[in-house]
Amino acid sequence: MTRYAWWEDLVTDHRDLRAALAAASRRTRDVDEDVGELPPLSVPRSAVDGGPLVETAAMGVLVGGPYLRSHSRGWEIAPGKTLDMRAFLGRQHELTDIIAETMPGADRLMVHVVGPWTFGASVEYKGHPLCFDRPAFRDVALALGEGIREFCDAVGASVVHVHERRLPEITTRLEGATEFETMSVDREIAVNVERRFIGQVCEGPDREAVLDAGAVWPELTLTGATSLVVDELTDDVARVIDGGASVAWRVHGGSSDEVARRVIRTWRQWTFDAATPEPQIDLVAVGDGVLTPGAAAELARTVRGAAELLHRN
């Protein structure tokens, strides 16, 4: 199983990209703790509303993908170039240049993107969620996959964190413009689309994807993701681990000791068919909203310390 030890899933209120990248590097790399692995360094994310969503769209624009514009309900597909996308394209180009200048060849650089189903459920097309129009959704999903791959090639990213938190909603009941307009996608179809997307993004042997789907289904192990992000350490998670999958637990706070004890205590309660010498669970520092640099550093210290305790024990 691929191990990452821990990584960040948070947004800070830095106004300067260079300062944001330097702070992320200090939180992740310039530390004394031995966590057993080289943790991924997360590329800074925008604090603008819908940040990861429009950043993902900006990557898609690189290959002629969708332009977005904001409206009262959120974001919609635009017929051509927009000021919103110009701003985010400029940010992406600046970020690419800074990474090339300050950390060429960085190991395990992580890019955070929105998955195709969450993108399709969150962006409107002709007044309805994009995924309600199957041909348009397919074209946009393919463009996003190619654009993300090109961006990851440009910055040298080796890990992609796919945020797909609306997948459970897609496979049960997604509401459209009104409560009477709904859709539901079969799990097998949803997983197949996800597998195609991850295959595009991770084309080649040197890039991996972690999937945060907001659910723990056995079928998700077939998407090609090297690790599944989970909200709680439940028996469903144990079954996924027993099937050979790697998982990472979302940690919102607490102390390092509390987090490490929770993992070890839960691990000992589970019974596996195969012998596993130590808790095979990574940790994800999840920030609630936009964090100040101090709050981000404190959360990173907590999760980093818990990963060190797990590695030592």
Rank of each mutant, 00 (worst) to 15 (best):
A22R: 14
V210L: 13
L10H: 05
V263Q: 10
V11D: 03
R250I: 03
S184V: 12
L142W: 03
I264E: 14
S255E: 12
A306I: 00
E8L: 15
L62T: 08
L283E: 01
P104H: 09
S46D: 15
L299S: 10
D273S: 10
E298L: 09
E258S: 15
V160R: 03
E101H: 09
P40A: 02
Y4C: 06
V11S: 04
S246Y: 01
S158D: 09
P66A: 10
V290Y: 06
T276K: 08
L83T: 13
V114K: 06
L220M: 11
V111I: 03
S246N: 12
G74T: 01
L310T: 06
T12E: 14
V284I: 14
L309C: 02
A306G: 05
G80L: 02
T118S: 15
G60C: 04
L53A: 06
A306M: 07
R239C: 04
E181A: 12
A121G: 05
M85A: 08
R165W: 05
I77Q: 05
P52M: 03
R3W: 01
Y125M: 03
T82D: 08
E278M: 07
E101S: 15
G65T: 01
V303M: 08
D153Q: 06
L95K: 09
P116R: 09
A260C: 13
V159Y: 04
Q92I: 05
T171M: 14
